[in-house]
């Protein structure tokens, strides 16, 4: 039995670490946390309450909360797909909570619906690098390195602001045999 307060605490800590906020409407927040709790009890991991999970860990890896799409979604729309995590302007009510488009690739969505994917889905790291524009960034203050579309809002390690991040440009070629 998963405790709701633990689900809540985990989300709060994660929001704090990454400089995000939890959705401001208390009822909506409660619904989302209960959905996460339900999924964790059902599948053994807290997959996104607003997406259909397959129950297969490997297939659902990208939608385990916080999902792979949270950071670019909060960056672009001010909130993640289910709206659990929001940006400050949304938390303050300056921008309304509204549905945002789905960023998850269609092949992964189809797989959760029980239908085998039409083409083979590449391993996650390659797939992610191919179907998004993720890059490496490092924090010039503490050296923390992250792989995402935009530099983080704040450094989760030393709290340095976004301006302290710089892209890592690798000029060496990785040789693949």
């Amino acid at each position: 039995m998963i405790k709701l307060e633990n689900v809540k605490r985990r989300a709060e800590m994660d929001a704090k670490t990454h400089g995000y906020f939890l959705t401001p409407d208390p009822d909506f927040l409660q619904n989302l946390l209960e959905g996460l709790k339900e999924n964790e009890e059902r599948y053994g991991y807290p997959s996104c309450p607003c997406r259909l999970a397959s129950g297969n860990f490997e297939w659902d890896r990208d939608i385990i909360c916080p999902c792979d799409y949270r950071d670019p979604d909060v960056e672009e729309f001010g909130m993640c797909y289910c709206a659990l995590y929001v940006r400050k302007d949304v938390a303050d009510g300056a921008k309304p909570i509204e549905p945002i488009p789905e960023r998850r690739p269609q092949a992964k969505i189809d797989r959760a619906s029980g239908k085998p994917p039409e083409k083979k889905i590449p391993p996650d790291i390659t797939g992610a690098a191919k179907d998004t524009n993720r890059k490496f960034f490092y924090c010039k203050v503490c050296g923390y390195v992250t792989f995402r579309e935009e530099p983080p809002h704040i450094c989760p390690i030393c709290r340095a602001k976004q301006e302290f991040f710089e892209e890592i440009v690798l000029d060496t070629k990785i040789k693949v045999r």
Binding site: L36, E38, P49, C50, C82
Partner: peptide, 10 residues
């Protein structure tokens, strides 16, 4: 809908 989804409940 999904039974767990906040938007569906709304």
């Amino acid at each position: 809908a999904l039974s767990t989804c906040g938007w569906c409940k709304m």
